[in-house]
Simulated scan of single mutants.
Amino acid sequence: MKQLIMIRGGGELATGIAHRLYNCGYKVLMLEQQYPSAIRRNIVFSEAIYDGETTVERVTCYKADDAKEASKMLKEGKLVIMVDPGLESLKVFKPKVLVDAIYAKRNLGTNKDMAPLTIGIGPGFVAGQDVTCVIETARGHNLGRILHDGIALPEKDIAEARAIMRASHSINSPCDGYLEAGHPTAYIIDKDEVIGRLHVDGGHVLEIRTPIAGVLRGMLHDNCPVRTGLKIAEIDPSTKPANCMSISAKTRCVSGSVLEVIVGWEHTHVKKSRLLPWKNK
Rank of each mutant, 00 (worst) to 15 (best):
L90N: 12
L90K: 02
L90V: 13
K91E: 15
K91T: 15
K91P: 02
F93Y: 14
F93L: 06
F93P: 00
K94P: 00
K94L: 12
K94A: 12
P95G: 07
P95R: 12
K96T: 05
K96Q: 14
K96R: 15
K96E: 04
K96F: 09
V97Q: 03
V97T: 07
V97I: 13
L98Y: 06
L98G: 04
L98P: 02
V99D: 04
V99M: 08
D100K: 04
D100N: 11
D100H: 05
A101K: 04
A101G: 08
A101T: 09
I102T: 14
I102W: 03
A104Q: 13
A104D: 14
A104T: 05
A104Y: 05
K105N: 12
K105F: 07
K105S: 11
K105C: 09
R106M: 14
L108N: 10
L108G: 08
L108A: 08
L108H: 08
G109A: 12
G109V: 10
G109Y: 05
G109P: 07
T110M: 08
K112M: 13
K112V: 07
K112N: 05
D113C: 08
D113E: 15
D113N: 15
M114H: 13
M114E: 11
M114Q: 15
M114G: 09
M114V: 09
M114F: 14
A115S: 14
A115F: 03
A115T: 06
L117N: 02
L117Q: 03
T118Y: 08
T118L: 06
I119C: 03
I119A: 01
I119S: 01
I119T: 02
G120A: 10
G120Y: 08
G120D: 11
G120C: 09
I121G: 01
I121H: 03
G122W: 01
G122I: 00
G122M: 02
G122Y: 01
P123T: 05
P123H: 08
P123W: 07
P123A: 05
P123C: 09
G124F: 04
G124A: 09
G124D: 09
F125M: 07
F125T: 03
F125Y: 15
F125H: 02
F125I: 06
V126K: 14
V126P: 00
A127W: 01
A127E: 04
G128K: 10
G128V: 10
G128M: 06
Q129I: 14
Q129S: 13
Q129K: 15
Q129L: 11
Q129F: 11
D130T: 10
D130Y: 07
V131C: 08
V131R: 00
V131A: 06
V131S: 03
V131Y: 07
V131Q: 05
T132V: 02
T132S: 15
C133P: 00
C133E: 11
C133Y: 03
V134D: 06
V134P: 00
I135Y: 11
I135Q: 01
I135D: 05
E136D: 13
E136L: 06
E136P: 06
E136R: 03
T137V: 14
T137R: 01
A138N: 09
A138H: 08
A138G: 14
A138E: 13
R139Y: 15
G140F: 10
G140Q: 11
H141G: 00
N142A: 12
N142W: 13
N142R: 13
N142S: 13
L143F: 10
L143V: 13
G144E: 13
G144C: 10
G144Y: 01
I146K: 08
I146R: 10
I146A: 11
L147W: 02
L147I: 10
L147P: 00
L147A: 03
